[in-house]
Design a protein around this nucleic acid. Sequence first.
DNA 1: ATGCATGCAAATACTTTGCATAAAC
DNA 2: GTTTATGCAAAGTATTTGCATGCAT
Lengths: 161, 161
Amino acid sequence: MENRLERIKKQLHAQSYKLTPQREATVMVLLEHEEDHLSAEDVYLLVKEKAPEIGLATVYRTLELLTELKVVDKINFGDGVSRFDLRKEGVNHSHHHLVCIECGAVDEIQEDLLGEVEKIVEKDFHFKVKDHRLTFHGICHRCHGQSAVKEEADPSLAGNV
Amino acid sequence: MENRLERIKKQLHAQSYKLTPQREATVMVLLEHEEDHLSAEDVYLLVKEKAPEIGLATVYRTLELLTELKVVDKINFGDGVSRFDLRKEGVNHSHHHLVCIECGAVDEIQEDLLGEVEKIVEKDFHFKVKDHRLTFHGICHRCHGQSAVKEEADPSLAGNV
DNA sequence: ATGCATGCAAATACTTTGCATAAAC
DNA sequence: GTTTATGCAAAGTATTTGCATGCAT
């Protein structure tokens, strides 16, 4: 965790940005909630616990900065909010998501399943792939087979949105 | 074109919705701009040419309805707007997109390249896939190789956003 | 001192909603 | 005549921006 913060600090410095206490608190929240897909508002509320004086605008500005630096990916599941997803270290593309249409849970696939597909895109469509966004919509393993008890599916117990 | 409108009309009627003149005008705009990725506002402006009295709210409501009926897909490229993309007939999933980071053009891949990947997702992640969203970010065939003349890339001549 | 970063409030952008009217069945 | 759809305006969200202040070099 510490070294990831350090690395991000270096990335900031490399572009002559500072790791201010507010930015550090924001990054820490993201590191601590790596599995989640937090909206700017979510991040704001969590950062406030560490740095109560922080403003929402600063959080937005920090998330924008981190997106630029490719520390996080700004993703969108079709509800009206952008969510921010920490990239794994050394990984140069956004990972995949599984959105459950029953319970709303969002799970991640870290493994890159698009290698072959990207080759086809580059060859057949003459498109130089730099990054990708892949989301599947369907029924997650928790909801699967329990369509009879749909109503009881509890997203809070399941994957994180 | 006519038959596609007819088919959409039937889909509406099947759920006891009406094909009002406003809805028809909206659908016609979508059919005429199949290659584009129009925002609600874009659709509104185009529909106004056919039906000047239409209100923006009606366009939003119609697009929402068409999304429900899976006539269109509501997609999002990360700029703050939802865009609406007509599904091909008989196709039951969203098609793929190629977003050029140089010129902003968005091209489509109609062919489904995810068959194998979905099998893996279903087997290894126990996730029943119902639909998907796949977007590649990179350099399109028009911009490719002309990085020296970047500034001259003209999205209006290229694919449509 | 200078420049970057912050907090707050105001502004903007997009989308949804309430409600009275109008059209369709 | 009852339901469904529309247009307008108002309200809601999400996000961005302006600006005075603060912090760090």
